[in-house]
Design a protein around this nucleic acid. Structure first.
Length: 108
DNA sequence: GCGCTGACTGGCA
DNA sequence: GTGCCAGCCAGCG
C-alpha cells in the first residue's frame, strides 16, 4: 500500500464498468481491509466533493440496497444514473444484483 | 484521551 | 426476506 486508502477506493470505483455495480465490502476486501467496509462508505462521502467525480452510484451495500442514495443531491440522482446505465432499480434496491455485480477481486 | 456516529458486513433467529 | 447484535476503523466534539 503506497497510496492512501481513499485514493485506492476512488480508483477502484472509477474502474467499475458502466452498467455494473459493486459492494463496499468487495472494495474493502480487494484493498486488503475486509473489515473496513465502513471506511469505504466514509470515503465515498468525499467522493461527492472529489475531483475528478466518482461514480459513487455504482457502489451499493452487500444486499444491492442503495444505502447511500440519501447522500446524493438530489437523492433520486443515484437511481437516475443507475437506470441510465441499464441497471434496474426498484424500491432503492438493485434488481438482478448478481448479474450486474462487479467483483474487483475477480475482474482485476 | 474518551465516547459517539456512520454511504457496512456477516451470522443467527 | 426481515430484524437484531457485535465487530471494525476513521473522523469529530
Amino acid at each position: 500500500m503506497d497510496q492512501n486508502f481513499y485514493e485506492q477506493v476512488f480508483e477502484l470505483v472509477r474502474l467499475i464498468p458502466k452498467g455494473r455495480v459493486t459492494s463496499y465490502g468487495a472494495i474493502a476486501k480487494s484493498l486488503g481491509a475486509g473489515r473496513a467496509s465502513r471506511m469505504v462508505g466514509y470515503a465515498m462521502r468525499n467522493a461527492a466533493l472529489a475531483h475528478p467525480p466518482i461514480p459513487a452510484h455504482r457502489v451499493v451495500n452487500s444486499s444491492g440496497l442503495l444505502t447511500g442514495k440519501f447522500h446524493f443531491n438530489p437523492p433520486e440522482l443515484m437511481v437516475e444514473l443507475l437506470e441510465a446505465e441499464g441497471i434496474v432499480v426498484k424500491e432503492d434496491k438493485v434488481q438482478q444484483f448478481k448479474k450486474v455485480f462487479w467483483d474487483p477481486m475477480i475482474e482485476l
